[in-house]
């Protein structure tokens, strides 16, 4: 099963390397990963998705918790949560294809953020499934480049991950 693990960690050099190293060292997989400072500049928030059975994911969270730089760890998929991913897609579109790409982008509530005579750059946010669906939907045109941020997530309601 896919899990979204959210980590609050000291904004220190080497902290990210410790986390990534842990995954490599213990043969855990990372599907996606993103990291950035929080409202408190001494803290960073890292979100990663991994696939594994529950016991393995439990080991992952326990091992992460052991790292000295890590303040808190939560498996967001254990509760209600919101997840989003941002994607930038460059597609080659000319003639009637241009209208079709525009229409598909609107349907997916995306935005065209840059264009040339033959290229549209589309920005799209949503859960990973929606982004996959968009790529399928524009499948008839040539996709030139795809950049995805990986999943970010946050728990629904009152629950927060903070100090």
């Amino acid at each position: 099963m896919r899990h979204i693990i959210s980590v609050l960690m000291e904004n220190e050099p080497g902290a990210l390397a410790r986390i990534v190293g842990l995954f490599a060292q213990r043969n855990y997989n990372i599907e996606s990963l993103n990291v950035a400072p929080t409202e408190d500049p001494t803290l960073s928030r890292l979100t990663l998705t991994t696939i594994g059975e529950d016991r393995k994911v439990e080991q992952i969270t326990k091992q992460l918790n052991k790292l000295v730089d890590i303040v808190k760890v939560v498996d967001l998929t254990e509760g209600a949560h919101v997840e989003r991913e941002l994607m930038l897609v460059k597609v080659k579109a000319s003639g009637s294809q241009r209208e079709e790409v525009k229409r598909t982008t609107d349907i997916f509530r995306g935005q065209i953020v840059d264009l040339t005579g033959s290229i549209y750059t589309v920005q799209l946010a949503g859960d990973s499934g929606k982004l996959d669906a968009f790529l399928q939907a524009v499948g008839s045109v040539t996709i030139v480049e795809v950049v995805r941020t990986g999943v970010s997530g946050i728990a629904r309601g009152e629950k927060v991950l903070s100090l």
């Binding site: 050099p13 080497g14 390397a17 410790r18 190293g21 060292q25 000295v68 730089d69």
Partner: peptide
């Protein structure tokens, strides 16, 4: 890194 409890530079 993989064989320490923690490290500092």
């Amino acid at each position: 890194r993989p064989i320490v409890k923690h490290s500092f530079l």
